[in-house]
Every structure is written in structure tokens, then in C-alpha cells.
Write a protein that binds this DNA or RNA. Structure first.
Lengths: 199, 199
DNA sequence: TACACTAAGTGCATCGTTGCACCGAGTGCA
DNA sequence: TGCACTCGGTGCAACGATGCACTTAGTGTA
């Protein structure tokens, strides 16, 4: 008759913690456990009942946000007008605020170095996982194309994005001012061009 | 540093139960414990942790609502333009939706009989408690008047209201249609007139 | 070097909520 | 009369949240 309130409340608390962490990261605040607890309206101790460490909270939030972004990216590709596989993926990449996402992760992970294992892990895990899915859906949108071509295309552009993202971080320190964004678009176009015309 | 979350949460649950009961009563629903628990998003058992019975919940809600109404009534008297003690109290009585309040209590208490002990108790407790306070504030507004006159005036009009309210219930069964409201205003004016001109 | 201070993380007892089984009174029905 | 059913209310154990004391690590300072 009644939904299990116990687990529902538990889930709500977990969500509150993650939402609070997301909010603080978005505001650029470097927060402590107490700040997070206050913001989530939850006891400090409860945070450690749900997560093994603060890093656990942060990486969970980062993973979630990457999932959301890439999900949006994926639907943009698959639901957009049918042009060409390459143009579709490239267009979706152009439409996505990659610098914003990177700046978010940058703040969340406390200014990770290029190649930082923690950051790389989060990047890799989510990018790889969704790349395959994207390729599959792209094949559904272009049934006449070889699925292998779709997989290679997506993989190339996605990995290329990771490469230029790493470079962009090294150069701009994840700043999101006008110049940094201009640089990003240059890098992106160059990467797209390289992938399109071959090496 | 942190506010006591334990008691705060407890208070919030209590409030949720009372608010849910208020909402159900306002909608005219004759509710069960399970309905109340669902509406308050709280376990059925929790209700009995806070209140000894359903009646306890209902009477608490009724008392609270009466307090609110009479508080509004009191501030209307004390903060309104200075005319005369009598005119002020009578005016505030005219401006208050007494039939609406009675209809609420009627629904909440399940159609109490005129003179019903439970309803009368709630009426008496809140009316008496606030009458004295009203008289005191009225005296502050009219320092030149004898405080005893203020007390008698307020007491007369308040008790007169209870009297005609009881009569109104007996005649209309707490219906709030146009005819019932018209009757109420007639009763009110007659009561005010009786008090003003003497017996 | 020694000391104070801050913040992450743990252990533990306590508290309020929850689910569930259960009781008893009232009610409709065969 | 007997039986099923509903609903208010209770007893109880389990669970998650909480507060607090405590440890540990890092950092600034005299």
C-alpha cells in the first residue's frame, strides 16, 4: 500500500547531498564537509554513511554531470536532422558547451593536472561507455552505412575531443573567458578537420 | 554550529501531519489514519508517535485555526483606525468570516451537535484566552477609557458571537450558501444591536 | 621544534521513523 | 448468530540519522 519510506528517505538524503555538492561546485566554492552538510540540510555524519569520502561525493557528482551532458549530446546527434554521420556528430560537438563542463570538473576536482588519474578515470569511463551507445544509435539513424564506420567515426571524434580538452586545460587552466572559448573553437575545428581529411 | 536536526525534523513531521489534516478538512474529506499518513508523507505509526489519537490531531488543527482567525481578528481591532471601542470590535466581527470558520470546525469535528462538549471546549478555550488579550490591547488603543469597560465590551461581543454561532449551526447545519450567510449577518447585527442598546 | 588549529574520517550510543503483527470495537451480511 | 471486513490504536524490533568524542593528517606560527 505504502511505498517503502525508509529507502525513499535514504535516497532523498543521498540526492540532497549530491545536489548540494553540485550547487557548491557550480558556484565555484571549495567546500568542506560541514559546508556540504549544511547545504544539504543533513548531518555531517550522514554524508559518511552514504559516501566513503568527500572525493567519493565529488566523483559521483562529476560522473552524473558528465552523463547528463553526454546524454544530451547523444540525443542531439540522434534526433537532429539527417545530414551525414560526420556532420551530425561534429555539429553536436560544436553545440555542446565542452569548456563549461571542463571548467566544472576543474573546479570540482580542485584543479587537476593534465593527465590527472582521477579526472582521466572519470573522463574515460563515461566517454567510452557512451561512445558505443552513440555509435549504435547513429547506425540506427543511418542504416545504409556500415556500423563499423559509425563506431570509428564516433570514437575518433570523441577521443579527439578528449585530446584537445586536455590540451585546452593545459593552456587555459580551464578559464571560461572569451579568449579561452575562442581557442576552444579553434581547437575543435582543427580536430574535426584533422579527423575528416585524414592524417 | 548546527541546529538540532533531530528535534527540527520531528517538528517538521508534526507540522506535516497537521498541515495534511488541515488540507483534508478544508477539502471536506472525512479522512482515515491511512489517508492522513499518505497525505502527510509520513508513516501511519508516526502519527501515533506525535498524537495520542486522531481526535487529538483534529482538535489541535481546529485550535490552531481558531487561534489564527482570532489573531487576525485581534490585530484588525487594534491596528484599525481609531473610531470607538465598540465600533472597532463590531467592525472587526463584521469583517471576519465566522460562518466559514464554523463550517470548517463543523467538517473537522464531524458535524457536532449544538453544545457538543468537544466543540464547545475548543471554542471556549480559544475564545476566552484571546478575549482577555484583546481587551488589554483595546485598552492600549483607548487609554482614556476604563479598562474594565473594554473587558466587558469585548467579553459581551465575543460571547454574543458564540451564542449566535450556536444558533446559526442549529438552523443552517453550518451550510455556507448565500441564504445561510445572509442569516448570519442578520444574527450578527441583531446581536451587536442588543449589546449596544442594552437588554 | 613545539604548539595550536583546522578538517577528514571513525566508533558508538541515542533518537525518531518505519513496517508489521496484533488487538478490539464497530459494521455489513448470510 | 456467526463471519468477514474495516479501522483506530499498541507493542516491538530494525533501520537510518544524528550528535559527540576521538583519532589522524596537514598547515601555519612562535
Amino acid at each position: 500500500m505504502t511505498i517503502d519510506r525508509r529507502s525513499a528517505l535514504k535516497a532523498r538524503h543521498r540526492r540532497a547531498i549530491l545536489d548540494a555538492a553540485h550547487a557548491l561546485i557550480s558556484e565555484g566554492v571549495r567546500f568542506s564537509v560541514d559546508q556540504l552538510a549544511d547545504r544539504a540540510d543533513v548531518s555531517r555524519r550522514t554524508i559518511f554513511n552514504h559516501f566513503v569520502s568527500i572525493d567519493d561525493v565529488v566523483t559521483t557528482v562529476c560522473t552524473e554531470m558528465l552523463h547528463m551532458v553526454i546524454d544530451g549530446f547523444r540525443t542531439t546527434v540522434t534526433s537532429g536532422a539527417r545530414e551525414s554521420m560526420f556532420a551530425d556528430v561534429a555539429g553536436a560537438l560544436r553545440a555542446t558547451d565542452v569548456p563549461g563542463v571542463i571548467a566544472y570538473l576543474w573546479r570540482a576536482l580542485g584543479g587537476f593536472a593534465p593527465g590527472d588519474p582521477q579526472a582521466t578515470l572519470i573522463f574515460q569511463a563515461t566517454f567510452q561507455r557512451t561512445s558505443e551507445e552513440m555509435a549504435r544509435e547513429l547506425s540506427r539513424k543511418y542504416p545504409e552505412a556500415d556500423p563499423l564506420d559509425a563506431a570509428i567515426l564516433v570514437s575518433s571524434l570523441m577521443n579527439g575531443t578528449v585530446v584537445i580538452a586536455t590540451h585546452w586545460i593545459a593552456v587555459t587552466a580551464a578559464a571560461t573567458d572569451e579568449r579561452s572559448r575562442t581557442l576552444w573553437h579553434h581547437l575543435l575545428e582543427r580536430m574535426i578537420d584533422t579527423v575528416r581529411t585524414g592524417y
